[in-house]
Amino acid sequence: MTPDHVSPREGVSYLRLAAYADGELDTASRQALEQWLACCPDAEEVLRDQQRFSPGNVEFWSQVAVPEPSAAAWYRVLRTLADRLGCRPEFSAAAGTNLHPRTNSAIRKLVAGLVAAAAAGLMISLGLWGIRSQQTPTDSPKLPAHALESVVGTPRDSRSTTATGPAALPRPAEPATAMAVLPMATAEDVWIESVCGKTTAILPGLELPGIDNFSLATRTDVQLEPFQPETKSGHRAVLTGDGASPIVIVAVLDPANSER
């Protein structure tokens, strides 16, 4: 016997098996249905079918869970919505970015790791560049154009107090292919619309193997030494003004794609 070949009264009872499986029946209806189930063995199998696809079957639904889109895909949705709705990020003057102050420790560690690795790369890069520059003077190198467009955008304030920003970061002429470097700037120098008040951010256009989103560091994450505008080797370095907060961006430079 199937629900399609039963009396109208029994048919209603069969339909109620769906609600019974989902826990949607009130006490009286549930008790009445259970009495009917006790004397209708065929209904037991139908009930099992209903229970298989009920949200209460956690095992089944965990096996057929919908795969989540990537963070980058969600970021594109957010950007599109923000553009269409006219939403703009609210930067915190104190933090330099509008990251939530309670950045979790795991992300802090990730940032710290990235910063440390990038700093090491920067040191090597600068060293190699220094050696190179003694042999062949070069113009001040720049980040790849696409990276600058997507990350730096339009400076908000041309009266920057920093000696250098990402666009003027010293970059090795050749040896630093795909080497991590560490551009630094203050919130006065860059406008990063991708920072939207969360602990993670995405910097489209930059390549960081295995990582497509990460936290931007704030002053609480990074200790900056009071660099001089000109180092002993003649390189320009980052100088942050009093009260300015650094934005640290880990980027991978590819000289082949850089502007000359």
């Binding site: 919908v66 989540e68 889109p69 969600w74 949705v77 957010l78 919505l81 923000a82 709705l85 006219g86 939403c87 703009r88 990020p89 609210e90 509008n98 939207c196 008040g197 969360k198």
Partner: peptide, 21 residues
Amino acid sequence: VAGGDMNCLEELLRRYRSVAY
């Protein structure tokens, strides 16, 4: 969001994007 607050938009999206997706 009606006032153009990006943070609110992001939080709203974060809150409901998975179920909507």
